[in-house]
Design a protein around this nucleic acid. Structure first.
Length: 540
DNA sequence: CCTCTGATAAACATAA
DNA sequence: CTTATGTTTATCAGAG
């Protein structure tokens, strides 16, 4: 009934809420101001589905010209009620997103299970069934359906400083997942094990004189953050997951998806856009605020573009009759999905086969022998893949190749710098000085030169792997280069242009009509959806 | 059957 | 010395 109400929402109301939402996310941005103006101008009763931004400067000249907004229901809770990770407590949200119909489709026996019981018997220590909305506070006997890395990720993300000591990670988990209060003590070991081995987590070096007791703070490696997000999104209970489902309704058979048992709605595995650069503020208030503050207007455009896309997605329910047909991108996406991510895969897992294991041991020996230290690390693994292993696993941790003592992060970086220091992923004092955290677009640019001609993942890995030392040098150069002003201005300009074009492309690719067609080369490979899509389109 | 992944256990080292 | 933390290795179960 909620969804019916939302379906009946008027354009005007929807527009108002969209503007409110954007304004909250990006206060004082040119975009939100313009949207407000547009909103006022378009609140006439005969308003149609399109915001007519074309007449209004400066938006008319930006990538947001002719933005199309598919109106539809939005979960009102999303707007303000949700604080960080509140969704964990809020089964209503899940219910809303999943839709009541889904619940009704659940067989009786499974419905019982959602109360933590099956046929009147307590189920303890079992993983929560995937088709039942999970409430960690309620289902204290069900093992949370999140991997330890996800739990740690959530804990750290939920902290204001984005860094926590192990003890606090324990506490967060205990608080949010009471299951562990009665669980065997081994889970703490698992947490530590995960922190230690998982490439996504980094130790923050203690500041001199700073005493936080034993141990150090742990944070998320920004390079792998998207992977963790991706992993989290894939969990059946996370709003992201639902959001993605809604944003990527499987319409064609070329689109790859999976179906959870008992879930009538197929779930696409391939993300069409990178949510990382625009985190929903209600889910990640600290980070989104920080991003919004520190970003340039152009960067923000990309964020807003993503937000719009996300909003657009969130407006769709699986049963929404107003669902628009897929854009050409989506069709292309389905065809090229697996291939297009492969080139960004981290190196192959260290463990696995006996041979790999042996090789890993050899590598480790080599790495630790004096004079043979190789600081190998995937340079910018902002990887969104179909492969769970590439989401966040530690099985591939050796691909980063950083010896443990070089994995920690210098505390000299401020909180904001947290998203800078990891780019080169070291803690060495000189590296900690990195201050040129380029927008992702600029990193795309680098990828462009490396992977644009690659035909398959293996080739790409070889190439990327083979040039690691080279890359290290390039990175150093680039880092130092940020102090060299002569090249800076031109590059910056070029970068900005590409970012704008990228944002434009993003919108196009997301099925949002924009004024211009982005030249092929302007799209970065990280938006490889874009590249492939445009190539496909261009080929036609 | 094999491989991969995540979980778990355990041994060990080290720091507070 | 004890305890907490961190690292490493081994093993197992489940999924694909």
């Amino acid at each position: 009934m909620d969804s019916n109400k939302r379906l009946e929402e008027s354009d005007e109301d929807f527009r108002k809420r969209l503007v409110d939402s954007l304004s909250q996310s990006f206060p004082d941005s040119a975009l939100s101001k313009m949207l407000k103006i547009c909103n006022a101008a378009n609140s006439a009763p005969d308003s149609c589905d399109e915001l007519e931004l074309g007449d209004l400067d400066p938006l008319a000249k930006s990538c947001f010209a002719e933005i199309r907004l598919d109106k539809g229901p939005i979960d009102e809770d999303d707007d303000d009620d949700l604080t960080s990770l509140a969704w964990l407590q809020d089964s209503n949200l899940l219910k809303d997103i999943a839709g009541e119909a889904d619940l009704e489709d659940i067989p009786e026996t499974q419905k019982e299970n959602k109360e933590g019981e099956v046929n009147g018997k307590e189920v303890s220590g079992q993983v929560h069934p995937p088709n039942v909305p999970y409430n960690p506070q309620k289902h204290v006997n069900s093992k949370p359906p999140y991997s330890f890395s996800c739990l740690i990720f959530m804990a750290i993300e939920d902290s204001p400083q984005k860094r926590l000591p192990v003890k606090d990670i324990y506490n967060w988990i205990l608080t949010h997942f009471p299951y562990y209060q009665n669980a065997p003590t081994g889970w703490k070991n698992s947490v530590r094990h995960n922190l230690s081995l998982n490439k996504c987590f980094k130790k923050v070096e203690k500041e001199r004189g700073q005493s936080i007791g034993k141990g150090s703070l742990w944070c998320i490696d920004p390079d792998y953050r998207p992977n963790l997000l991706q992993a989290l999104r894939k969990t059946p209970y996370h709003p992201y997951h639902q959001l993605q489902m809604l944003a990527n309704p499987p319409v064609t058979q070329t689109y790859s998806y999976s179906v959870l048992p008992g879930n009538p709605r197929p779930m696409p595995l391939t993300p069409r856009f990178n949510l990382n650069s625009s985190l929903p503020p209600h889910l990640f208030p600290f980070l989104s605020r920080r991003l919004a503050q520190s970003k340039t207007e152009t960067d923000m455009d990309i964020d807003v573009a993503n937000t719009l896309v996300a909003l657009k997605g969130s407006q769709r329910t699986g049963d929404n009759p107003r669902l628009k047909p897929l854009t050409p991108l989506q069709l292309v996406n389905g065809k090229t999905g697996s291939a297009m991510y492969r080139h960004r895969s981290p190196s192959p897992p260290e463990f696995g086969s006996e041979r790999d294991r042996h090789r890993a041991q050899l590598k480790r020996k080599l790495r630790y022998s004096p004079g043979n230290f190789v600081k190998k690390r995937p340079r910018s693994p902002v990887v969104i893949t179909n492969s769970p292993s590439e989401d966040h696993t530690y099985s591939a941790s050796s691909s980063s190749g950083s010896p443990r003592e070089h994995r920690s992060i210098s505390p000299s970086s401020s909180i904001d710098e947290e998203y800078e220091f990891g780019r080169r992923g070291t803690s060495d004092a000189e590296d900690a000085d990195v201050s040129d955290y380029h927008s992702e677009a600029s990193d795309f640019e680098e990828y462009d030169s490396d992977v644009s001609n690659l035909d398959d993942g293996r080739t790409s890995r070889v190439r990327i792997g083979g040039s690691l030392e080279e890359r290290k040098m390039q990175n150093c150069t680039r880092t130092n280069g940020c102090h060299e002003k002569e090249e800076g201005a031109a590059e910056e300009e070029d970068e900005e242009r590409k970012i704008v074009e990228g944002a434009d492309a993003l919108l196009n690719l997301a099925g949002i009509k924009t004024a211009s067609i982005v030249p092929l080369r302007a799209i970065s490979p990280t938006c490889s959806t874009g590249t492939s899509a445009n190539q496909e389109i261009a080929a036609q």
